[in-house]
Design a protein around this nucleic acid. Structure first.
Lengths: 201, 201
DNA sequence: TGGCAAACGGAACGCTGTTCCGTATCGTTC
DNA sequence: GAACGATACGGAACAGCGTTCCGTTTGCCA
């Protein structure tokens, strides 16, 4: 853990030049392999694209999850950080929540196989799981809590559950007769609590 | 008449006794392997449980989907046939739809890995896909159409889409913090169209 | 320039699904 | 009941995957 250099680099003696070069090359290769074959692209393919041996991949990214996280880190961060902004700018918390979920869905839907990987119980994806939850659950929870506090949605759904449900609905997006976005829209609509009798005070 | 063979058996010259015995043994073995390791249980495991060679499995069930369909056929049929009954017995079409979906979810949730397999784009599962859709889409469509005709739900969702969405939400059921049944409940709630001029928006 | 730690490459291993063919068994016919 | 052809069986063999491991190369610093 915490051995990401290029930043503080305090006690870490800085990696060798070829190692840093290879890491960058691998990220590019992985990104293009993911686009071409999904996030399950064979390790050998990625290695070949990068012009390195498979051992080099495992040295830099011990599990596939590490590689996926590294490739998509920026986008996940952006999604997480969009939460507070949306909450501040939207007319209602529920609108902010819906917009934020749209961001998340747009991200997932364009990454072939990522939604599947996110729900996989394969041990290789544990880190992926952990990272996504770590970054996105708090963001989602903030929006969810705000909407619940405003009485707009039923209060018994956790951010974890909602993210997982949305992620699940994104599996198979891109197939002809299945519109993941609409399904998520319906799920979010189902969250609403219609004020009748016991309304927000 | 006097059709000893349980199959249609018209031009088919009836299989050898050992073949029929092995097929039954394999179904049992597969069923128990599926319970123990999910529907992805290794072919060799199933063969070992049945006490046969792997070749025998492939002769009887050319693809994994064929085996899965054979194991769960009865339950899928029961689910499909429950549709009209529920529609006749329930107070509203939407109630019938909700109950029917509950049946489907109960079925899926208790089959380790089945929901995942159903959404897999792996060619080996194409038959599985086809069978489930063939049996369940019409049943679902009947309920969906009735509810739509009654104005209870939004009319722009297809049975295919709904089934797929529900199936997706069942992925990962059984994990500690994710309640697939509740997510499906929310999705079904989101289907409702509230008769008061301005729907949820 | 010498030396060594870091990094590399890819052969090798284990676990999958899948195919293939020599062998065994069944059912029929004489 | 013996013989024979068709059917079915078993498991070795192959291919594709992830993962490990170690002999070799390379960058860095003294």
């Amino acid at each position: 853990m915490a051995d990401i250099d290029s930043e503080s680099g305090r006690s870490t003696p800085r990696k060798r030049a070829d190692a840093r070069r290879n890491e960058a090359t691998l990220l590019d290769a992985a990104a293009s392999a993911f686009v071409a074959s999904g996030v399950d692209a064979p390790v050998r393919d990625i290695a070949a694209r990068a012009g390195v041996g498979v051992g080099t991949i495992y040295r830099h990214f011990p599990t596939r999850a590490d590689l996926i996280v590294a490739v998509y880190r920026h986008q996940v961060e952006a999604c997480a950080e969009a939460g507070p902004t949306l909450l501040a700018d939207s007319s209602t918390p529920h609108a902010a929540l819906a917009q934020w979920i749209n961001l998340f869905v747009d991200f997932l839907v364009t990454k072939h196989g990522l939604a599947e990987a996110l729900q996989s119980d394969n041990a290789a994806f544990e880190t992926l799981h952990a990272y996504f939850l770590d970054r996105l659950v708090p963001a989602c929870a903030q929006l969810l809590d705000a909407a619940a506090a405003a009485g707009e949605i039923r209060p018994d759904v956790t951010a974890f559950e909602l993210l997982r449900g949305v992620g699940n609905l994104c599996i198979g997006a891109g197939e002809p007769r299945y519109d993941a976005r609409r399904m998520v829209e319906i799920l979010v609509a189902g969250l609403r609590q219609h004020p009748q009798g016991t309304g927000p005070r």
